[in-house]
Design a protein around this nucleic acid. Structure first.
Ligand code: MN
Ligand code: MN
Ligand code: MN
Ligand code: MN
Lengths: 229, 229
DNA sequence: TATTTTTGTTAGATTAACCTAACATTTATA
DNA sequence: TATAAATGTTAGGTTAATCTAACAAAAATA
């Protein structure tokens, strides 16, 4: 049985590798920063997780998950996102409130609990932030994502997530009228000030590149490459 | 913020005092046994909890909860029982399965979560084992309980709990047809072999004193004294 | 390539929660 | 009431997870 701390390290490693861009390994400092601990602490844990055959790690090298380690990590992500969905759909939490509580709930040990929760939620594919929920068998589809800022003019896309998870930003996104899975049409880009003209739910508006850089989208017109890990 | 371990000690102390019979303090060995730790370990924690003003404790004396400590303990019991109710009512757990998972869930820190759960369950008063769920304001009604073995012949009562929590016993109780909150009529007691004749849901049957001793009931005909703590 | 900066490791310490073994106090009982 | 039994405490040790400070290696850059 893994400790909560060990689970958190595995999840962090997953997020810094296959989840993020196409990087398959992470450095010690990077991992430590992501978890809010000192590099010395992370170093100890890396050695321990290697002993347990959950990660690949060599002195002064980058770390990555083993097949077994990735399986565990995906299980935790699945639990996290199912709980987020439950909190959002059944308990009236807002999407900027769910994460903090899910960080705790993801460590509850009971396979029956998570299976029944999945059933109650009718086997959802996405969490309230638009992130993919891995299946019970551990498959995790990762659709091609980019930012709204990178989207081609004229294309139609939908918002699937955000990069900035601060409550401030999330509340601003809500205010602007953007929602998860809501179609967005990119109308134009002003050459003068780089503002991006979009149409959301019939309503036209302009957003700054900085803002658009923090909106993650999946394009409906680009080739939507889907891979499984 | 209290640690999971500290919370478990407070809850144990509550269960060994006001919850149990009318005993208001518990010994170190008793507490240790209840928590499955060695007396030396419990002793350390008692000193720590006294420092935090959560318990009354003096060297070689019995321990009891302070007002603050009891408040915390009741909060944990509330969470435990609301989660048990959720698992039973919404996720199809059987009543012998809920406790183990609730032991974990009771330590999740989020007042919004527990308020919303309470709302979702429509503010229940009893958990699946028939135990009283403390209110959001920390009131915990303790109805007068006795065992089926102690019930007066001719009286009507209802089963509100069990003393033996083993899966074996609980499954047997189910098999016999007894359910929480189900009315039971005590018809007679055979002087020859002490078997107790009862009527449950129109069905008559006989049970042994040993069995009856593990069935906790609330009498409908006796004076049902209700006190608040 | 030599030097500086970044990144990663080790040693040694701390805290919480546990343990065993030895000792002390209180309570029961002969 | 003297002894035995039960109950409770202390001292000293372990493990997991964290830290700081000093050091080592690798990468970047001058
Ligand atoms: Mn989250
Ligand atoms: Mn999420
Ligand atoms: Mn329970
Ligand atoms: Mn219960």
């Amino acid at each position: 049985m893994l400790s909560t701390t060990e689970e958190n390290y595995l999840k962090a490693l997953l997020q810094l590798t296959i989840e993020q861009v196409d990087k398959s390994e992470a450095g010690t400092n990077e991992l430590a920063a992501h978890l809010g601990v000192k590099p010395a602490t992370a170093n100890d844990m890396l050695k321990k997780l290697r002993e347990k055959q959950l990660i690949h790690y060599e002195k002064y090298g980058k770390s990555s998950l083993t097949v077994e380690g990735r399986k565990k990590a995906i299980e935790i992500v699945r639990k996290h996102r199912l709980w987020e969905t439950f909190l959002y759909e059944h308990l009236g939490f807002t999407w900027d409130e769910v994460h903090e509580v899910a960080e705790q709930l993801e460590h509850i040990q009971s396979s029956k609990l998570i299976d029944k929760l999945d059933e109650l939620l009718d086997y959802p594919s996405f969490d309230p932030h638009g992130d993919v929920i891995p299946s019970a068998t551990g498959e995790m589809k990762i659709p091609e994502k980019k930012t709204l800022n990178e989207e081609t003019v004229g294309h139609q896309c939908k918002m699937v997530g955000v990069k900035d998870n601060s409550a401030t930003f999330l509340q601003y996104v809500d205010k602007v009228g953007l929602r998860i899975n809501q179609p967005i049409k990119v109308l134009a880009r002003q050459p003068y000030d780089e503002l991006i003209e979009i149409e959301v739910n019939g309503l036209k508006s302009s957003v700054s590149p900085r803002f658009a850089d923090n909106i993650i989208i999946v394009c409906h017109d680009c080739e939507t490459q889907t891979r499984t890990c």
